Simulated scan of single mutants.
Amino acid sequence: MKSTLIKPGGNREPASPVAMILHAWKNRALILTLTRRDIASRYRGSALGMLWSILNPLLMLAIYTFVFSQVFRMRWGSEAATSPMDFALMLFAGMLGFTFFADSVNRAPGLIVSTPNLVKKIVFPLEIQAFVVIGSGLFQALISFFVLLVAYVLAKGTAPHWTIVLLPFTFLPLCLLVLGMVWILSSLGVYLRDIGQLVGHLVTMTMFLSPLFYPVTAIPESFRRLFYLNPLTFVMGETRKVLIIGQQPAWGALTLFTLCMFLFASAGFWWFQRTRRGFADVL
């Protein structure tokens, strides 16, 4: 009987971009169920429960705003923001994307290692765990989005710009970027256990090398091109456009960027499908 079994992730696992989309569609019900379970497990046992999903972004926003706008006296620029509250809105808009990125990427190295029982189940589609991470992160981002809307109304005394409906278009390439990174890092985490420690430092470094606490215009021109190599730079800029400034995104650049991120996600899916054949042996 043992000779007839196919190891999870064997050569028969499809790894094309089409297969990536089909796997997500065919397993959509399972992904939704696992996402709900993942969200519930985060706050299970805590006294405040799901209320932490609102308190966490508010606490981080309050700390960052106080330190950077009151202690360091930073402003976003004369044309966009001059008061601490304006700075807070610009900061929070950038935090939407970065928090989603950081939370998902930090979880990636231990994603497969923490569920060895699923690895040895031949019928379980391991690749969908990346979609569960994305779904859980998007839930938190959605909560933060509504918090931002309330803060905007209180600060500005007016309704948000209509361009907020365009936010999904600016978040789509970020989701594809994170999806590819989760597949790559989760597979590497099986073979290289130290990758989890390294990723934590890289995420922290990315936070300060992204225009989260400052606008791109504050970066010296000689280094500005290097900052644009960071995908989060573009995402944060376009997110602030549609949420705070009230401008439409640069559609041409956004379309090209989304295509590049789709190719990156496809490469991550291919990597995961080609490396997963050894997961059962290692775990």
Rank of each mutant, 00 (worst) to 15 (best):
V182T: 07
G97P: 01
S144Y: 08
Q197W: 00
L254R: 11
R107V: 03
L174A: 07
T233V: 01
Q70P: 00
S104E: 03
M1T: 06
L209P: 03
H201E: 01
N56K: 02
R42E: 11
G196M: 06
W162V: 08
F213S: 05
M90Q: 13
I245M: 12
I219T: 01
L154M: 15
G94T: 10
P57A: 05
I63A: 13
L32Y: 08
T163W: 00
R37W: 11
F131N: 14
T82W: 06
L232T: 07
Q248M: 11
L212T: 06
V178G: 09
M95K: 13
A265H: 03
V153T: 09
S83K: 13
V67F: 01
P84H: 15
S104V: 09
I31Y: 05
T204G: 12
V67D: 07
T35E: 08
V190R: 00
A62V: 06
P231E: 12
D103E: 14
P57N: 13
L254Y: 06
V67E: 09
W271A: 14
V242Q: 05
S187H: 03
A19M: 08
Q197L: 03
T170L: 06
T170A: 04
I122W: 04
G196F: 00
L149S: 03
M261H: 10
L209T: 13
V199A: 10
F171E: 11
I39D: 07
L5Q: 13
L229C: 02
G10E: 14
S53M: 04
L126D: 12
R193C: 08
R225A: 15
A250E: 13
I63L: 13
Q273M: 12
I164C: 04
L148N: 08
Y64L: 07
L226E: 11
V178N: 10
V190N: 04
F208K: 04
G77Q: 11
A24N: 09
F92D: 12
F139H: 07
T275G: 03
Y228P: 00
I195F: 02
G196V: 10
V105F: 05
F72I: 07
E238C: 02
I6Y: 06
M95L: 15
I184T: 14
S136K: 14
G157H: 06
T33W: 02
W25G: 12
I195N: 10
A102H: 04
W25M: 15
I6G: 14
T4G: 01
S46A: 02
M236D: 03
T82M: 12
D38M: 00
L177Y: 08
L32F: 08
L209M: 14
A47Y: 06
H201Q: 10
T170I: 05
W52N: 00
G45R: 13
G49F: 07
